[in-house]
Design a protein around this nucleic acid. Sequence first.
DNA 1: GTCCTTGCAAAACGTTTGCAGTTCA
DNA 2: TGAACTGCAAACGTTTTGCAAGGAC
Lengths: 141, 141
Amino acid sequence: MDAIAILRELKSRGVRFTPQRQAILEFLLETKAHPTAEEIFQHVRAKFPGVSLGTIYNTLNMLKEHGHILELSYGDMSSRFDGNAKNHYHLVCLKCGRVLDYDRPLLALEEEVGRETGFQVMSHRLEFYGLCPDCQEQALN
Amino acid sequence: MDAIAILRELKSRGVRFTPQRQAILEFLLETKAHPTAEEIFQHVRAKFPGVSLGTIYNTLNMLKEHGHILELSYGDMSSRFDGNAKNHYHLVCLKCGRVLDYDRPLLALEEEVGRETGFQVMSHRLEFYGLCPDCQEQALN
DNA sequence: GTCCTTGCAAAACGTTTGCAGTTCA
DNA sequence: TGAACTGCAAACGTTTTGCAAGGAC
């Protein structure tokens, strides 16, 4: 589903279709980089010089609430946003902060966890921390 | 290992043993609640009325760097701290924000992920999101 | 025309930093 | 004694909010 299709669907729920929103969502869908709000801002500003960071956050929160993007937050760094809300996992580089996708079959644990704990499990998040190939190479030098 | 033993061990690495640090670490070790820095501050202030939030953060960062506690961060809420740095997983309630421990054998995935992706995996984090038993009950009313 | 959204600025929030004074070793 | 730590306050970066003007429908 592309940006226009998603925004059309949202329109039927009372969310307005604006060119800024289209630019933000298109960028999120086409990049694999898990950008921060600031990075999205810089990118969208190339097309819409007057856009503000407030609008970026407004749109990101709206898309997140409707389940079209994911917010990934880490201790010290600012949040990163993922245009792929379909389930997948992440590899986080502890040195450069980069976040890479890791596609693999989802773990079938939720039902078992719910049974064991009484929690009504709705989703899960799995992340691996370490060094990306680039940073491993640098460590050798 | 209790707070005094941990602080004694840190002393041999040049970290000073202060009563504020003892109070902070004791609270983290005895609670299961994964408190925020602010909650730790409120608790420690009962014993040390003059303590400052800066000291709380200073101590939490020191303990985290030495691997004695974990920092858990989520999108909108502030970080929570876990006095149990031994590997275990977490259940996060989407309604009340509570974080519960989930003890189970660790997944043996790191080696496989490293092989598949070229990442040098050093740790992983697994969290389940949903409704805790209390909030499920409330939803019925 | 209505009301949602934008841009801007200010504010809020959690966290870090700088510094003078204090305490631990 | 001297380096590490404390308390305080100011600073910081990220995110949210308030509001008047603008744009979608």
